[in-house]
């Protein structure tokens, strides 16, 4: 039981004894009496933080070590780690000359409120409540003759997706945005401009390169250059 678990002994507010009691209480509210200070033990308590120097590092020794020891691909633009925070031009980035002519739009992924990553994509109520459309600035839409709700095809050399477009000033010119996590659904009867079956599910991974990011080795869903036309 949660209330008898020793890890919850000092929990505030105290844990209920049963599910029935939790239901009766309803929403739990707790207000901190004092402001919480980040790194309080370091700032006021004199304790070391978990860096090699024990201090807050602007030049990170551990990042410098990783940048030196890890193996990077010199043919992948931006595949390196630096000891100080800096802007790293990358493949499929804003300055990438190799892709900017064929794929003039930068595509960023974001967390849509209609899912948790890919979980709950199958819930019809959520699909109705949060439209899975690619966001585009009115400036970019004008040149392509697009209106909100139009079905578009978006592609790069890795794949093609087909989905509605939402024209909105909430995204910058030259940039389009698509909520990540939609389920891949290839229409094998139709081959897109990329030479792949058209993904009518609108999954951003269809357009994303299989190239782990330099430090986190994450899926680079925010690093895609694409072109968009009316479907």
């Amino acid at each position: 039981m949660t209330s008898t678990n020793s890890a919850n002994t000092n929990a505030q507010p105290t844990f209920p004894n049963s599910y029935a009691e939790a239901q009766k209480i309803g929403v739990f509210r707790a207000f901190s009496k004092t402001p919480v200070l980040a790194l309080d033990s370091y700032i006021n308590g004199g304790k070391a933080v978990s860096t090699p120097s024990g201090k807050i590092e602007i030049y990170s020794l551990s990042m410098a070590q990783k940048g030196k020891d890890w193996i990077f691909n010199p043919n992948v633009k931006g595949d390196y780690i630096t000891a100080i925070p800096m802007y790293q031009p990358t493949w499929d980035g804003y300055e990438d000359e190799d892709t900017k002519d064929d794929y003039p739009l930068q595509l960023a992924g974001y967390h849509t409120k209609g899912r948790t990553h890919s979980s709950y994509h199958n819930v019809p109520w959520l699909r109705e409540a949060a439209e899975d459309a690619v966001w585009m600035n009115p400036t970019d839409a004008l040149g392509r003759g697009l209106r909100s709700g139009d079905k578009v095809q978006m592609w790069n050399e890795r794949g093609t997706v087909e989905l509605p477009v939402r024209i909105t000033p909430r995204v910058a010119p030259g940039v389009v945005a698509l909520g990540q996590g939609a389920w891949y659904q290839p229409d094998i009867a139709r081959i897109g401009r990329s030479g792949h079956p058209i993904d009518v599910g609108g999954c951003i991974n269809t357009l994303t390169r299989y190239q782990p990011s330099p430090l986190a080795k994450g899926n680079p869903q925010h690093t895609n250059r694409v072109q968009i036309v009316k479907a």
């Binding site: 109705e128 600035n137 909105t168 909430r170």
Partner: peptide, 28 residues
Amino acid sequence: NLPGIIWRRVYEYGGGNWSQNVDGSFEQ
């Protein structure tokens, strides 16, 4: 599924414009 039956609707309302400066940067 109850398609199209939305008794409480959340409207997203917005506007404003983007303009480009001579150095290529944007104001909005």
